[in-house]
Computed example of a mutant assay.
Amino acid sequence: MHRPKSTLEQWRILQAVVDFGGYAQAAEKLNKSQSSLNHAVAKLQAQLGIQLLEVKGRKAYLTPQGEVLLRRSRHVTQSVHELEQLANNLEQGWEPTLTIARELVYPMATLTDALVAFLPDSRGTRITIVDTVMHGTSELIQNHQVDMAICATPPTGYIAQPLCNLDFYLVCHPGHALAQIPDALDDQLLARYLQIVIKDTGVNVTQESGWLKAEQRWTVSNFHEAKVILSKGIGFCWVPSHMVQQELQRGELVRLTLTGSRCRRIGLTLVVPQRDTQGPACKLLESLLLAQHAVTGDNGH
């Protein structure tokens, strides 16, 4: 019978040293002594007969061999974590906490209605709602940091249940120069003016999304901030229709029309990143959220 030379703890320590940028930083995060981390990594390298790290200055860097082994080790430790999480769910039977990623454009009122229906049977489950934008939602799904996510574009490899479509209106203040133009606007004309955009919450954003041809841009964290700026007669912005209905009715904002387009439309979906370890509380909340959109789920509810 083969006996492993290394332990999961050694690989977790190596991952921490790399992720946090050195032995001192990892020791602080793990609440361990720096010498114990040095010893663990040194022993791991001796057991494997391969140098995994080399220290330059105060920072530890992976060797080429270390990069390959570290990448594979993450799959192993993640699998063990998921296995332990599954055992924990089976033992407890009901999740004490649930974390939901909500794409910022998704109506909070709809999510709240589902949570109100969930409350009587929640058994005290604590709910955390994380507001996200574009790539930020996908990263939380891929990193298994949430129990469910409402997103516009699910990452590759994840099954998504369509929930609803949302229309975005191009709006500005009625006193803005664009509002004085009676004809539909073309891209070239619109690009001359300041655009208000919502910041992508992703950490590793490789490309920008949406209509971003304007030379001048102000980036804010949410649509409430965008509307404050618009109310001052500054800029234009694409805003979900349900977030500007009142301002449009009161004449505080006006809709603009682009040549060939009255609005933008996106579809929102529901993703459960770890379906095989999904607990009963998550299943119940999922079914109640699907019910808000008259969608019948196949999760047993």
Score class of each variant (00 low, 15 high):
Thr110Tyr: 06
Arg74Met: 09
Thr99Ile: 07
Ala114Asp: 04
His75Ile: 06
Leu104Gly: 02
Pro96Leu: 12
Gln92Ser: 04
Leu104Phe: 03
Asn88Val: 05
Glu91Gly: 15
Glu95Tyr: 00
Ala109Pro: 01
Leu70Tyr: 08
Val116Asn: 14
Gln85Trp: 06
Asn88Trp: 12
Leu69Glu: 15
His81Asn: 14
Thr99Asp: 08
Leu90Ser: 12
Tyr106Ile: 04
Gln92Pro: 03
Glu84Trp: 10
Leu86Val: 01
Gln85Gly: 06
Arg71Phe: 03
Glu95Thr: 01
Leu83Ser: 07
Thr110Gln: 13
Thr77Met: 08
Glu84Ser: 13
Glu95Ile: 00
Leu115Ser: 09
Ala109Phe: 00
Asn89Cys: 08
Thr99Val: 07
Glu84Ala: 13
Val116Trp: 08
Leu90Ile: 11
Val116Gly: 06
Arg71Thr: 06
Ser79Lys: 13
Thr97Ser: 08
Pro107Leu: 10
Leu115Arg: 10
Thr77Gln: 09
Thr110Ile: 15
Asn89Gly: 05
Ser79Tyr: 13
Asp113Asn: 10
Gln78Gly: 13
Glu91His: 11
Leu70Pro: 04
Trp94His: 02
Arg74Glu: 08
Val80Lys: 14
Val80Phe: 11
Thr97Gly: 04
Trp94Asp: 01
Ala109Glu: 11
Glu91Asn: 13
Ser79His: 14
Leu69Ser: 07
Glu95Arg: 01
Ala114Ile: 01
Leu104Arg: 03
Ala114Met: 05
Thr112Ser: 12
Glu95Met: 01
Thr77Ser: 10
Tyr106Val: 00
Glu84Cys: 14
Gln92Leu: 10
Val105Arg: 05
Met108His: 04
Val76Ile: 14
Thr77Trp: 03
Pro107Gly: 06
Thr110Ser: 12
Ser73Arg: 02
Val116Ala: 09
Thr99Arg: 11
Val116Asp: 13
Thr77Glu: 07
Ile100Tyr: 01
Leu115Trp: 06
Glu95Asn: 02
Glu82Leu: 15
Leu83Arg: 11
Arg74Ser: 04
Leu111Val: 04
Leu90Met: 15
Ala109Gly: 05
Leu98Gln: 01
Gly93Phe: 08
Arg71His: 09
Ser79Leu: 12
Leu70Ser: 14
Asn88Asp: 14
Arg71Ser: 09
Leu86Pro: 00
Arg72Trp: 03
